[in-house]
Simulated assay, not measured.
Amino acid sequence: MVITLVRRVTAACLLGAALSACAATPHQAPRVTRPAPSTASAPSTASAPSTTSAPPTLAPGPGGLTPVFKHGSRARGRTVALTFDADMTAGQGARAAAGEHFDNPGLIAALRALKVPATVFMTGRWAEEYPDQARSLGRDPLFEIANHSYSHYAFTDDCYGLPTVSGDRMRADVERAYAAFRKAGVPDARPYFRFPGGCYDRRALKALTPVGVTAVQWDVVSGDAFATDAQAVSRQVLEGVRPGSVVVMHCTRSAAPTTERVVRTVVPELRARGFRFVKVSALIGS
C-alpha cells in the first residue's frame, strides 16, 4: 500500500515514499488533448465512460514519452486540487487481516460533508481489499479515481526502500490496477497515473507510453505521512498552496492518521482565501 511521499528513509519509508518528488525528467508543457477511447489504452478498457468525451490528458512529451503534470495554470483563477493516495502494497494483506486500516472512511465522510471534489489515486491492491469503498468512491460524482499502480512497487531503483517493478512489468502493473478497479465496480477510472513514491525516470515514462496515461505529480507536499501534529501539516499545506496547485495527501489511517483533521482545517481556510476546489481533470482541462 504505502505511498507516502517525502523525506523519510526509515522503516516508515514504504509509506512516506510517495511524498517526495524524485522525478528525473522535467515537467512537460501542459498541451491538452482529449483522445477518443481506444481499446489499446488501459484507462479506456477499464471503464465505460458515462460522458461522450474522454477526460482531458496531456499530449505526449518529447520522443512520445508519457507526459507529466505537476500543477495547473497560475493565472486562471484560484483553483486547487486535493489528491489522496490510497496506498496498499501487494504484500500487506496479512496486516489488513490483522486489523491494520489502510482505508479512512472518516476522511471521505469529511470531504463529502464539506463538498470538496477530490482525486483519489488508488492502488489495485487497495481496491481488492476495500471493493465496496472503491465502488462507492468511483460512483460518487464528487470524486474521480486514478491509478497508483497495482502493487505500489517503485518504477525506479532506490525509491525510499520500496520493492521495484522490472521494466518489462511496468505496463502490466498499471493495467492490472485498472482491471482491479473494474472488478470492484469503478465505472470510469481516469487516465491518470501517480508513480509510487513519486519516483520516475525516462525508462518508466517510456514503458507507460502505450497505456495512454498522463503522469500526475504535485507541487504541494502536505507532510501527512506518519504525521501526528495536524496543525503542523495544515500550516504546511496553507503555506504551500498557490493558484493551480496539486496537493498530495493520503487516505490511509494507519500511515496518515491526521489527514481528516487537516482537511477540516484547510478547506474552510482556503475557501476564505478565495480558493475553489477542483479535481485534477479540471486543472488539466484548463
Score class of each variant (00 low, 15 high):
132 D>T: 06
219 D>H: 03
184 A>E: 10
219 D>C: 11
57 T>E: 11
157 D>F: 01
174 V>Y: 13
191 P>D: 12
21 A>F: 15
101 H>F: 12
241 V>G: 04
266 V>C: 01
71 H>Q: 12
275 F>T: 00
139 R>S: 14
226 F>H: 11
160 Y>M: 11
135 R>M: 10
126 W>D: 01
110 A>P: 00
97 A>T: 08
274 G>D: 09
64 G>T: 01
139 R>P: 06
116 V>Q: 03
191 P>E: 13
131 P>R: 03
131 P>A: 07
218 W>K: 06
183 K>E: 14
60 P>G: 10
246 V>G: 08
225 A>T: 09
196 P>M: 05
159 C>T: 12
155 F>R: 10
22 C>I: 04
193 F>T: 05
31 R>C: 04
148 H>D: 01
106 G>S: 10
266 V>G: 03
186 V>I: 13
31 R>W: 02
250 H>Y: 02
103 D>S: 13
80 V>S: 04
60 P>T: 05
6 V>W: 05
59 A>M: 04
41 S>A: 14
212 G>P: 10
130 Y>W: 06
7 R>I: 00
242 R>I: 02
138 G>F: 05
177 A>H: 13
241 V>K: 08
92 Q>P: 00
118 A>Y: 07
211 V>I: 15
159 C>L: 11
9 V>M: 14
97 A>N: 11
211 V>E: 10
159 C>K: 12
251 C>V: 14
61 G>E: 01
176 R>I: 10
238 L>Q: 06
232 A>R: 12
205 L>D: 06
103 D>H: 11
216 V>R: 03
235 R>A: 09
189 A>D: 02
9 V>W: 15
139 R>F: 13
198 G>I: 06
79 T>I: 06
145 I>T: 04
